[in-house]
Design a protein around this nucleic acid. Structure first.
Length: 869
RNA sequence: GCGGGCGUGCUGGAAUUGGUAGACAGACCGGACUUAAAAUCCGUUGGGCGUAUGCCCGUGGGGGUUCGAGUCCCCCCGCCCGCACCA
């Protein structure tokens, strides 16, 4: 890749233009509130070490939007920061004996430099890192405000506990019931933890989704399901013992299928239900069963997939409407304590889990809903529960006073009767649970709470904030270093002055990322968010990130805004006006015959197929998967930049594949992008030989000049629309088209003056159009064309709308739906005239020979379809 | 288990949202240039029949609605993702 004068050399050009942009402070967002604002934000990265291709894709998309909007006259905020707390830093500390802080800041330095190499138009003066006390101190202060506002509570919940590492494990860290690092059998353990009361906002968070109409439908649906609103009835059963004696406790259950009450044949309570706990004290079997359930883990998936099991508790529930009918009460592994009342009645005919359970324990299965055309006497349930479909005309059977009713009517009737009898109430229930934010870890934001033997839980006074993490910690022993720190924990109680101890739990890192976007508005303010700056910049106009954050991060952020509003920190509810979720970067996987993963740079193709570059072993190609260190199918962005330049990498990321889909990184694709940068350079070089003038449009224009102008402005319109809609792949196809047209014109000898004028216009607009994608090359080309200033400081060109419509258009002619010919007509020609012209055409006459015309459909400017037979 | 998504040439994808399927790109093959290679330029490429400017088939499979379906509806097949302490 030696630089000849003919070739564009990104290694020289890119650092040069990056310096120019920096010196001119092109990308610093001013707080000039007179200008219309545009806030574009990509999800900030975790500083894991080096940027990866996923970052390149994400940040390139955001940068295209930022540069485009800036050119369109907006005051653009495009900041960057670091989601800098989290477990990998602690893992590094344990594995490599490096302090989490050192590790994190070293990574930040590397990644900041790499992002700068990419030519991102970021406002670095606003950079924040969540592990900086200047950031997390404000987080602590908001926590105290939330606490005072009643948005936070402390309660006990169960976690996966690794008894060897003395740490809580994420579900994904539990593999076959054992801790991923220690291999120890994982226990369920009850811990007192802090919760944000997000469930206070269940209904609001759900309803407000309707207004987020520029979010992907998929994400809104995922959030709706996550919040999980259901309409049902909460009611209580009377309980009796084996001998039929009434007990003094009742069993509360929640159900959405109260219509099936006559099909109930058992009750089931969670293994963590107080009733089960009570029974476990006197029964060894029940205690064992509880232990078995605990080993299942806490994930809903594991619980639902597990074989349905239970154990009788020796008590019976009296049917509310059928005296003498009693239902055995089981503790069961598929009933979740966190949902509803942690207790259900089982109706095996109409719920698959209940049916599986009933079959296992030989319980009765009574069908109570049947298709309208079924015979109630013979309708039976086989291996599949009969579920009511939405449009089903099902009717109630075997249900006394409900017989013959629809499911909806039966629900209504049962709810009313229960309310009248005083045993139940209608209730809207949500699946959304409160957000547990306590983490028993070091590298996170300390929770600003003090525990005092006398005063109990005492908030740290705001004047004592921030509670700063101690740096002199060791990771040589398992467990949380804060727990065993000699001095940090000890503190005087702010209320009574006696010896007390600090909370040693830190926040879930989702707390850090739930408000960083608001902090970017005023990153140096001495309050969490400056209200004036936030009122101007918020909400984020375009948020871009991975689909993996579709639920938690986005839902927590939506909650946080509401909590911040309630405590006076911000004046709006929704953080992200528009959301875009981009796909992953994937790559083929390579293995040796022995099954070892091989990095792509070690694979060479030779006459005998793919071989290992060093050992010569044959290489087996596997499917394309998300780039991961584990499978070694990674390509290092910095390596690509060194080889081809940032513009080529950026261009490749935007070409061909729609941004929401997974993109496959291929060497051939990168080569193609590289060749195109060179082609643009040559084309612009040739165009620069033509005098570029700012003379007005020559009048009249010859046909060739007119055609090129049309192509230019049609491309400009399409590219503008496509960038606005984040359809980068389509805008790139249009740029190729214009580059092709311009290249063709430049090959023509003896061009007219008018055509050369159009060449100048096309070249100038072409450069501006690809500038958001390949900003360095664009600056170099701009200079070559002799244009004043820099592209980054130049307004987006205006579309000459009179050139967008061709006066003659080609429309297809179909006979019986099959295309037979086409006709070129004046745009807007009336139906009748099109019809008569078409019917006279030779091809049409030929195809129609001997047939009767039954109907002629003419859609002006679109199509003609002749129905004949 | 529950919930969601996707399926178009050899490949990535496009299709004005019901109106000429395959834009644009990659790859391959052929040609030009070159001592040669690279680069560049030109051309071919969904399948089948065929002398044809012609016909038939074709958007995972099957059925339906419609003058007209890649697009809308129903059923089926295949692949992928999420499921609350990874971030």
């Amino acid at each position: 890749m030696s630089a000849t004068p003919e070739r564009y050399n990104p290694r020289q050009a890119e650092p040069n233009w990056q310096k120019v942009w920096h010196d001119r402070q092109c990308f610093a967002a001013s707080d000039d509130t007179d200008k219309p604002k545009y806030y574009v934000l990509e999800m900030f990265p975790y500083p894991s070490g080096r940027i990866h291709m996923g970052h390149v894709r994400n940040y390139t998309m955001g940068d295209v939007i930022a540069r485009f909007k800036r050119a369109c006259g907006y005051n653009v905020l495009h900041p960057m920061g670091w989601d800098a707390f989290g477990m990998p830093a602690e893992n590094a500390a344990m594995d490599r004996n490096i302090h989490p802080k050192t590790w994190t800041y070293e990574n930040i330095a590397v990644m900041r430099r790499q992002l700068q190499l990419m030519g991102m138009s970021l406002d670095w003066s606003r950079e924040i890192a969540t592990c900086d006390p200047n950031y997390y101190g404000h987080e602590q202060s908001m926590f105290l405000d939330f606490l005072e506002a009643g948005l936070i509570e402390r309660k006990v919940s169960s976690v996966n506990w690794d008894p060897v590492d003395h740490t809580v494990l994420a579900n994904e860290q539990v593999i076959d019931g054992r801790g991923w690092r220690s291999g120890a059998l994982v226990e369920k353990r009850e811990l007192a933890q802090w919760f944000f009361k997000i469930s206070n906002y269940s209904e609001e968070l759900l309803d407000a989704l309707d207004n987020l109409d520029t979010w992907p439908e998929k994400v809104r649906l995922m959030q709706r399901n996550w919040i999980g609103r259901s309409e049902g009835v909460q009611f209580s059963f009377e309980l009796e013992d084996a001998d039929g004696n009434l007990l003094d406790t009742r069993l509360n259950v929640y159900t959405t299928r109260h219509d099936t009450i006559f099909g109930a044949t058992f009750c089931a309570v969670s293994a963590d239900h107080p009733m089960t706990r009570g029974c476990a004290e006197t029964s060894r079997e029940i205690a064992d069963f509880r232990r078995e359930c605990a080993a299942l883990g806490t994930s809903e998936e594991a619980i639902e997939r597990a074989e349905k099991k239970g154990i009788p508790l020796g008590v019976y529930a009296r049917h509310p409407f059928q005296s003498g009918v009693r239902l055995p009460v089981y503790a069961a592994n598929f009933v979740l304590m966190g949902y509803g009342e942690g207790a259900i009645f089982g109706c095996p005919g109409h719920d698959q889990r209940d049916l599986d359970f009933a079959r296992k324990y030989n319980l009765d299965v009574i069908p109570v809903v049947a298709p309208a055309d079924a015979d109630p006497a013979t309708f039976k349930i086989g291996d599949e529960a009969f579920l009511e479909n939405e449009d089903d005309q099902s009717v109630m059977i075997n249900s006394e006073f409900l017989n013959g009713m629809s499911v909806a009517d039966a629900k209504e009737e049962v709810a009313s009767r229960m309310e009248k009898a005083g045993i139940g109430t209608r209730r809207t229930n949500y699946r959304l649970r409160d957000w547990g934010v306590s983490r028993q870890r070091y590298w996170g934001c300390p929770i600003p709470i003090i525990h005092c033997d006398t005063c109990g839980v005492v908030p740290v006074p705001k004047s004592d904030l921030p509670v700063v993490l101690p740096e002199d910690v060791s990771f040589s022993q398992p467990g949380n270093p804060l727990e065993r720190h000699p001095a940090w924990k000890r503190v005087d109680c702010p209320t009574c002055g006696k010896d007390a101890s600090r909370e040693t739990d830190t926040f879930d890192t989702f707390v850090d990322s739930s408000w960083y976007f608001a902090r970017f508005c005023s990153p140096h303010s001495d309050v969490p968010v400056d209200s004036g700056a936030a009122a101007y910049w918020m909400p984020v106009d375009q948020y871009i990130g991975g689909i993996e954050h579709a639920i938690l991060h986005l839902l927590y952020s939506r909650f946080f805004m509401r909590a911040m509003r309630k405590t006076g920190h911000i004046g709006m509810d929704e953080p992200f006006a528009s959301l875009f979720t981009q796909g992953m970067v994937i790559h083929q996987t390579y293995r040796t015959e022995a099954g070892e993963w091989v990095v792509p740079t070690d694979v060479i193709s030779g006459p005998q197929g793919l071989r290992h570059a060093e050992t010569g072993e044959p290489i087996i190609v596997g499917p394309s998967e998300k780039m991961s260190k584990a499978k070694k199918n990674v390509v290092d962005p910095e390596h690509i930049i060194e080889q081809y330049g940032a513009d080529t990498a950026r261009w490749f990321m935007l070409s061909d594949t729609p941004p929401e889909r997974d993109i496959e990184w291929t060497e051939a694709g990168v080569e193609g992008a590289w060749r195109f940068t060179q082609r643009l350079w040559r084309t612009i070089g040739e165009a620069s030989q033509v005098a570029i003038t700012d003379a007005p449009v020559p009048d009249p224009l010859d046909d060739a000049a007119m055609a090129l102008r049309r192509a230019t402005h049609q491309a400009l319109k399409a590219v503008s629309d496509d960038i606005s809609a984040l359809r980068f792949n389509r805008s790139i196809a249009r740029i190729y088209e214009l580059a092709n047209s311009l290249g063709q014109v430049l090959k023509q000898p003896n061009r007219s003056k008018e055509l050369d004028w159009a060449v100048g216009e096309a070249a100038r607009i072409l450069v501006q159009m690809f500038a958001p994608m390949m900003p360095h090359l664009a600056e170099e080309c701009w200079k070559r064309l002799g244009m004043p200033g820099i592209v980054a400081g130049t307004a987006w060109p205006e579309v000459a709308s009179e050139l967008l419509v061709d006066d003659a258009i080609t429309i297809a002619i179909q006979v019986n739906g099959k295309r037979r010919d086409e006709i070129k007509v004046q745009k807007g020609l009336p139906k009748e005239e099109i019809e008569s012209a078409v019917l006279q055409m030779d091809n049409v006459q030929r195809v129609l020979a001997g047939q009767t015309i039954r109907k002629v459909i003419v859609v002006p400017d679109r199509i003609v379809n002749i129905v004949a037979g």
